[in-house]
Computed example of a mutant assay.
Amino acid sequence: MSEHQRSPQPPLLFLACLLAGWGLGFLRPLGTHLPDALRHGMGAALLAGFLVLGGWALITFKGAGTTPNPNGAATALLTSGPFGYSRNPLYLGLSACLAGFGMLLDSAWVLLTVPVLVLLLNCLVIAREEARLRAQFGAAYDAYVRRVRRWI
């Protein structure tokens, strides 16, 4: 993969989606029409899930001595911890975080950006990461892909 095909940073894609949804809410407010207690509970649970999953994934990266940067050079193929359940736990966590903010902000617009974030991550980040990992780890990566789903 050439250097000019670098992936955008996932937190920036998250922030762009959050701001787009929030901005659309200013132009035309669109709530979820869910009871506040339900919205707050779901939003808090999604944000807690993000913190737990994201923290676990970052600890796993650090323990393996490799980088979570999608443009960085992987020094290890992570297949345990959260990576035993999802090949992309950080991106799953970012998506849950965005949904959590949508619930807490009572913004259907922010919630509608969650599939946009997933699409952007799939096309602009994950596809490139997978190509690099396949080239670097070969059959071990292919076996991992057969065993663990991309998201959940």
Rank of each mutant, 00 (worst) to 15 (best):
H4M: 02
L104R: 10
R28N: 12
G54A: 05
T75K: 15
T75E: 15
A74R: 11
G63K: 14
F137N: 11
R28H: 14
F83H: 11
L27G: 14
V145R: 15
P82W: 12
Y91L: 10
H40E: 07
R128D: 10
L24E: 12
G84S: 15
G81F: 12
T67I: 12
S107R: 11
G65N: 10
T67Y: 14
L30F: 15
L92T: 08
L121M: 11
G41I: 09
L58H: 01
A48C: 10
Q5M: 08
Y144K: 07
L34M: 12
L13H: 03
C17T: 08
A57N: 02
G138I: 08
V148F: 06
F83A: 02
L133S: 11
G93I: 09
V145D: 01
G55P: 10
M1F: 09
A20G: 13
A20F: 13
A140V: 07
L27D: 01
F26L: 13
D36M: 05
C17N: 07
L46P: 04
A108P: 07
W109V: 07
R146A: 15
P29R: 09
G54N: 06
G72C: 13
L51W: 13
H4A: 09
L94I: 03
L119C: 08
L98V: 02
H40C: 06
W56P: 04
L121Y: 03
P70C: 14
A74C: 03
N69C: 03
L112W: 15
T113L: 15
A48I: 14
Y144A: 06
L119K: 11
R28V: 04
Q5P: 00
P70Q: 14
V148W: 04
R28I: 00
R39D: 02
A139W: 03
L34A: 13
F50Y: 14
N71E: 10
L24K: 03
A108L: 15
L120G: 00
L77W: 11
M103I: 03
L117G: 03
G49S: 07
L18G: 02
P29E: 09
S107H: 13
H33W: 13
A37S: 14
E130R: 10
R132M: 12
F50P: 00
L78A: 05
F83T: 04
S86E: 02
V114M: 13
G25N: 15
T113V: 07
A143P: 01
E3K: 10
L51R: 08
P89Y: 06
T67E: 11
P29V: 04
H4Y: 02
G41Y: 09
G43H: 09
Y91M: 08
S95T: 13
N122P: 01
A135I: 00
K62C: 01
L19W: 13
V148A: 06
V145P: 01
K62R: 15
N88T: 04
A57G: 01
Y141L: 08
S80W: 02
A73C: 03
P11A: 06
S86V: 02
V125T: 10
Q136M: 12
L51V: 12
L13C: 02
P89K: 06
G138W: 09
